[in-house]
Amino acid sequence: MNETFIAIKNLSLFNNKKELILAINEFSLKSGEFIHLVGPSGSGKSLFLKSLIYLYPIQFDTYLFLGLDTSKQNIFELRRKMLYLNQFPELGDKTVSEVYKTFESLKINSPQNWQKKRAEDFISMLSISWSEWLKRPVSYLSGGELQILQHSLASAADPLIYLLDETLSAIDQEKRKLILEYYVKKTKSQQKSVILIDHHTSDMAEISTRDFLSLTTHSRNLVSRQEN
């Protein structure tokens, strides 16, 4: 039986003007699920993913992670287990090798939960030379390569949940397919979960286990939600 990773009831977020900008009535995520988060631009999909890792001061009736109240959990461990990757990663003015070192040196990481070898395997899977890759200055990487670097960091971290915010948008079709297969394998063989925002819907039907329609609103309009 699949374990419930996330259970949410009545989650809301207000902006600095105290206007409601995100409201989710009910949401749940189980282990092994691959959710395609859909909705028009500006509908709050990214806001929802960022809210899940408490980047914003959210309010809720219930927000459980692995059955425990998230407000009482260590926020850094929570973020480490529920990794958010963004569309336009900025990883500093360093070489790729230094970026790995920066992330590896975070207090939250240990040799047990951070394995650079997994990043190497991920990069090799995309037919990129690991030794050459490490030498590349981040400022010279294309948008797609930056996204690949971020995915490889996530593979080294190996969290329970991957929150992917349009993180395949700048990657070519061939590599995109390989990366999607990588995440599908994670959900099927390792019971990890993925929530993906992606506007290429053609291949999502066969990959995702379900869609989640996030319809939020600007200002005072009501928010609705629909789940397949």
Binding site: R79, T102, N109
Partner: peptide, 14 residues
Amino acid sequence: NRAYFISLISFGAT
């Protein structure tokens, strides 16, 4: 540099 900040925070950085 919000994106850089968020990138690190998202990976559990303080």
